[in-house]
Amino acid sequence: MVTPDSVDVVQRFMRAFQEQDRATAEALMAEGFVFTSPQDDHIDKQSWLERCFPTADHFDAPSETLQIVEVDGVVLHRYEYRVDGRRWRNTEALEVRDGQVTSAEVYFGGAVD
C-alpha cells in the first residue's frame, strides 16, 4: 500500500546509497526487492547490494533531486549528478509498500552539458 510517506522512504533510500549506509539501505529494501536498469535486468536485493550499492564513489558529488513525486503508487525521482565534471540526468520509478522499496527501475538520461 502506498502511503504519504513513500516519497520520504525513497529520499532516505537515496541518501543511504549516497552515504554508503548499507544498514539503512537494507532496512529500507523489501526482501523481494527487484532492480532494473539498462545494465541490470531484474536483479534481486542481494545482487543490487553487491553490484550497484558500492558504486556511489563513481559520482563526483551526491545527486541533486530535480523532481520527486508519487503518481499512482509509484515514486518518480528525477535527479542530476556529475561524473568526471559532466552533468547527467536520470529518472527512477520506485514502488514502496509498507515503508520499504519493493522495486526500482532506472531510466538513464543524457549529458546535460
Rank of each mutant, 00 (worst) to 15 (best):
D84I: 00
F108V: 09
W88D: 00
D21P: 08
V7N: 10
D84H: 04
I43T: 10
Y81G: 00
V96D: 01
E70K: 02
H77A: 02
D60Y: 06
L94I: 08
M14P: 00
I68C: 14
A61F: 03
L66W: 02
P54F: 09
E19S: 15
G110K: 01
M29A: 02
K45V: 03
L28S: 01
F13Y: 14
R22S: 08
Y107P: 00
F53W: 09
A93Q: 08
E26A: 09
G85T: 03
G32L: 04
A23H: 04
G32A: 10
T24N: 00
H77E: 08
Y81L: 14
G110P: 05
D41I: 05
F35G: 01
D84K: 01
V112C: 10
A23F: 03
L49M: 15
V75N: 04
S103I: 10
L28W: 08
E92Y: 01
V34H: 03
T65M: 09
T91N: 11
V96H: 05
Q20G: 14
V75E: 00
M29P: 05
H77N: 15
F17L: 12
D21E: 06
S6Q: 07
V96Y: 03
V34G: 00
V9R: 07
D5L: 10
V112Q: 10
A30W: 10
V101G: 05
Y107H: 12
E50I: 06
A93W: 05
A27H: 07
D98A: 14
V112I: 15
E26H: 02
S37F: 11
R15C: 02
